[in-house]
Nucleic acid binder design. Structure first.
Length: 348
DNA sequence: AACCGAAGCAACCGCCCACGA
DNA sequence: ATCGTGGGCGGTTGCTTCGGT
């Protein structure tokens, strides 16, 4: 049926910021008589406002039990946790944070926490690792956060620490998956022996090294469950790529991380050990989804944190790009790849 | 010092639901 | 069963402040 706003027809009702005088009128009236009917309150209190505006002003700002000021770390973590459980049920979340209003929490979420999660590569809606291209930009923050959490514990316990670790691991795995697919698709078509899954496992395990313990097990399980078909059919990165292909992915990323002086035809290898010069101008047609990809993405067992995205990875779109144009564009892939310092050998 | 864009936040808008007549 | 009202909620807007150039 619908309903007209409470202030419709009330010509001349004031809107906008409240003055101290209005605040005093409202507070005095409510403290003396209670708010009663919000619709009638403005007239009774001598305010030229609609009842709804009075209610909002009272509940969000004037109520005596409101706690103002910065959110504490514990409050922050609690909000994130509750949001992961309740979604945008701000009023429900607010009931768990004494002195905080739903509006305040909502604003804090939209202005701080949402960006924070995005920066960490976590989808603020699903609280899972993001699967879009901007994942790249967020990974350093995600990993840093995971690393930081590995240090001093927080008062709210280990739930968020473990979640962050897992999400960081999952995001790293996704990034590797996508990068390898993108590069191998765009690279020379010379077939090569299948890479060893053990090599990738070792690579990922090494990427965990020192930062935090425990999650390597999850990652290994993840890989075993996925049976990533794409890896089993991995073509050579270049004709000069080592037979073991994936063994040198670390060196390959080294090159990507310092590619300021790239020519138009090559991703300069890091020389020596890796020696991978990936020709990327000849962009291959998009690689069709293989059975293993689907299986990997749909495999929700074991608490896998991946979203079930048909696109399968952040890099599906990348496969059809002219990589060098993108990479050499300021603010484009070049910038993104420069942010991928975490992929350098110190980490891998 | 002036300008501009980004960030933060208070307040508004519109939809929805519960409840009573 | 239907309708009107009151109130709550989430989303959005727009003003203010801040920081960078």
């Amino acid at each position: 049926m619908g309903r007209s706003p409470c202030c419709d027809g009330e010509a001349g009702v004031k809107k906008g910021p409240w003055t101290p005088e209005e605040d005093k009128l409202l507070v005095d009236y409510i403290q003396e008589k209670g708010h009663g009917s919000w619709r009638r309150l403005p007239k009774l209190a001598g305010l030229n406002r609609c009842g709804k505006s009075c209610r909002l002003r009272w509940t969000n700002y004037l109520r005596p039990d409101i706690k103002r000021g910065r959110f504490t770390d514990d409050e922050e973590k609690l909000i994130i946790h509750l949001h992961s459980l309740l979604g945008n049920k701000w009023s429900s979340i607010a009931t768990k944070l004494p002195g905080r209003t739903d509006n305040e929490i909502k604003n804090y979420w939209n202005t701080h926490l949402r960006k924070k999660l995005l920066g960490m590569g976590i989808d603020p809606v699903t609280h899972r690792p993001r699967t879009d291209l901007s994942l790249l930009a967020g990974l350093p923050g995600l990993l840093a956060a995971a690393g930081n959490f590995g240090g001093a514990g927080s008062a709210t316990g280990a739930w968020d620490m473990n979640a962050l670790r897992l999400q960081a691991d999952a995001a790293k795995f996704q990034l590797l998956q996508g990068l390898v697919r993108a590069l191998t698709t765009a690279a020379a078509p010379v077939p090569a022996p299948a890479p060893s899954m053990d090599n990738l496992m070792a690579l990922l395990a090494a990427s965990n090294g020192g930062q935090h313990g425990g999650s390597g097990v999850d990652q290994g399980m993840l890989l075993q469950q996925c049976q990533w078909d794409g890896m089993n059919n991995l073509p050579a990165l270049t004709s000069s790529a080592p037979a073991s292909g994936m063994q040198n992915i670390s060196g390959m990323f080294d090159g990507l991380g310092s590619m300021d002086g790239l020519s138009s035809t090559e991703l300069g290898g890091h020389g020596g050990a890796s020696g991978s010069n990936v020709t990327v101008d000849a962009v291959a047609p998009p690689r069709p989804m293989v059975a293993g990809d689907q299986e990997c993405n749909n495999n929700g067992g074991g608490g896998v944190l991946f979203e079930e995205t048909p696109a399968s990875s952040p890099f599906d779109g990348l496969e059809s790009l002219n990589l060098m144009d993108e990479i050499n564009t300021d603010g484009g892939w070049k910038d993104l790849l420069e942010q991928m310092s975490w992929l350098n050998s110190s980490d891998l």
